[in-house]
Amino acid sequence: MNVKLFDSEIKVMHVLWREGPVTAKHISDVLKEEVGWNMNTTYTLIKRCIGKGAIERSEPNFMCRALIPKEAVQEAETNELINKIYDGSPENLFAALLGKKKLTSSQIRKLREFVEDWE
């Protein structure tokens, strides 16, 4: 995926990922509650997401649908984290995770699968 979404835009995407296609009005209501944005702010961000090809808009009622799956954004964000903070090495990220927190065996299994998929 080569679309770079900022945190505020990802916040908008989260509503769509969670609830499926909804109206812009609904997104605005949810985010007003969650992060205190007014309608104009949310609409600005939806427009930006549309511009980046992350959201598709259809009439009537300004229905919004996510064009990018959650996993794609998560992967992009993880890649960025690894590149920026862990010097491009996933091993460093793992070392940090393992050093910092106790992981359950299921978490370790998931991580192992993730690494295997990586290459």
């Binding site: 945190d7 505020s8 916040k11 992060v35 205190g36 944005w37 007014n38 104009n40 702010t41």
Partner: peptide
């Protein structure tokens, strides 16, 4: 201000 308003709590 429009940019600032997209901030997150």
């Amino acid at each position: 201000r429009r940019e600032f308003r997209t901030s997150l709590p």
